[in-house]
């Protein structure tokens, strides 16, 4: 889910950069010095997790887990996702450096929304905690797809049929993201509950 270089209009690129910069500044402000290593190494884990390919019918998809990222990191998801995307752009040319604002915002804003909507729900019983993980995982992915689609359509109206197909494609993936995020929350609750408090 990364828009590549050269496609979006300057106006959209600027809007994405400004919004992301705001989120990053807020995220850094909320990050205490003693929590820097936690945020950093958890981001390394999310980076590695995004290399995992999960089978989905005849195809496969790679994990995004931005909802889970938000539940664990809150506003710090902004700087963490920005760094991850910057690294992918520089090392693998996934996404791009000019589009980093738009891409970070589309992934990190849903993460922060998941944090506010579902974090407290993970403290409840097992079923509700799974539900919280499921909803965070699937909705965050769909919201990200929606933001990416919006950026494309705002750039050029003729992208609409392409964006429609893209968002439709993300529905089955969002179910996988949801189920996996739900199980991860259950696992963390059982083994390391202080990560969720």
């Amino acid at each position: 889910m990364h828009i590549s270089e050269g496609i979006l209009s300057p106006k959209i690129l600027l809007a994405g950069a400004v919004l992301s910069a705001g989120g990053v500044v807020l995220g850094l402000k909320k990050l205490k010095n003693e929590d820097i290593p936690k945020a950093a190494v958890l981001s390394s884990a999310f980076f590695v997790a995004s290399l995992i390919h999960v089978p989905l019918g005849p195809a496969s998809c790679h994990l995004v887990l931005n909802g889970l990222n938000g539940i664990l990191l809150g506003w710090t998801a902004f700087p963490c996702i920005l760094l991850s995307l910057a690294l992918q752009a520089v090392l693998f040319q996934f996404g791009g450096l000019t589009t980093i604002g738009v891409n970070s915002f589309s992934m990190a804003m849903p993460a922060v929304i998941s944090y506010y909507l579902f974090r407290t729900l993970t403290h409840k019983g097992k079923k509700l905690a799974f539900l919280a993980g499921f909803l965070a995982g699937s909705l965050a992915l769909l919201m990200a797809a929606l933001f990416v689609g919006l950026a494309l359509v705002e750039t050029e109206k003729s992208f609409s049929p392409m964006v429609g197909a893209f968002i439709l494609m993300n529905f089955p993936i969002s179910l996988v993201e949801g189920v996996i995020s739900g199980f991860v929350i259950l696992y963390l609750k059982k083994v390391k509950p202080e990560m969720l408090t």
Binding site: S44, V48, V179, F183, V184, Y187, K192
Partner: peptide, 12 residues
Amino acid sequence: AYMVGGLLIKSY
């Protein structure tokens, strides 16, 4: 999911 959970806990 348990793989990812394991990675997250080890990292934490």
